[in-house]
Amino acid sequence: MGDVANYMEGLKSQLGDAVGEAKAALDGVPTIEIKPSAIIAALKFLHELPEEGFDLLTDLTAVDWLQYPETGERFELVYLVCSTKANQRIRLKCRISELNPCIESATAVYKGAEWLEREVYDLFGIRFDGHPDLRRIMLWEEFEGHPLRKDFPTRGLHPVERTPES
């Protein structure tokens, strides 16, 4: 955690209120809550830090907090970035609304975000503005729904009968 202070100050001065406090998560990785409008600017800032330079996007995923509305907006995007130079990791989180699940694409900063964002789009139905090729990546094109949403029925929207006769 000690090193986080180095760039938290810069991040705060550049993005102001959009950046929350850095807290260590259970796994010890510093985690920062960020407003969705500032997420790309924050990633860009971390990416271009002269010393640490968070050059690797380890993962980009999402969480559906449907059953916990008291925690905030429904969808939470999680960005895990890593600095291969300084051997440091940092986690950015932002909440976006269920009504318009849409956020700016991180592909402008990390090219590797392309398939990760396609996966999030496929399974959560979150759209990414500015993504070069936003298609389903795992499920087939005709598939309806987004299975990792908590309100998606396990058997799918059009479940098949178990016995062929019926």
Partner: peptide, 8 residues
């Protein structure tokens, strides 16, 4: 018994 698997 899921949306992804062919049921036989």
């Amino acid at each position: 018994d899921s949306y992804a698997v062919l049921q036989g």
